[in-house]
Amino acid sequence: MHEMSLVRSLLRQVEDLLIEHGGESVSAIHVEMGPLSGVDRVLIELAFEQLVVTTFCADARLVIDEIPLSARCRDCQTEFNLEDFRFVCPQCDSQQVQITGGDEFRLLEVEIETADRCRASQEEKPCCEARA
């Protein structure tokens, strides 16, 4: 189970973004996973639940977008979703298939809360500078 280390890395990146953008807190973390991401959704959620309370993102909710495994045929350029792990083009039967999605665990976007008083000077003086 490597989900703990992946979620730890995810939260560290989110904390860095929070500091970089001068936020007060994180309200949502959007991630994407697919059939070849090498992660299990339940284990990711469990790891997140355990680790998030130890970070600056304690109030954040994790939003998981599950996407299909998608590919492009290198021979006829057809784009298609794979229903199983048989890497064959449905159009021309070629096995020269390139994966285009669903094989990574991706951080899509982060929603952070910023204090209104700081908005004008966010670039130069982040609200959470003291925390950093």
Partner: peptide, 17 residues
């Protein structure tokens, strides 16, 4: 408080890669 959305769009393991 104002909500701000930061677009990232990268593999969580990008730095390790």
């Amino acid at each position: 408080m104002t909500t701000k959305t930061i677009t990232v769009q990268r593999d969580v393991k990008a730095e390790l890669r």
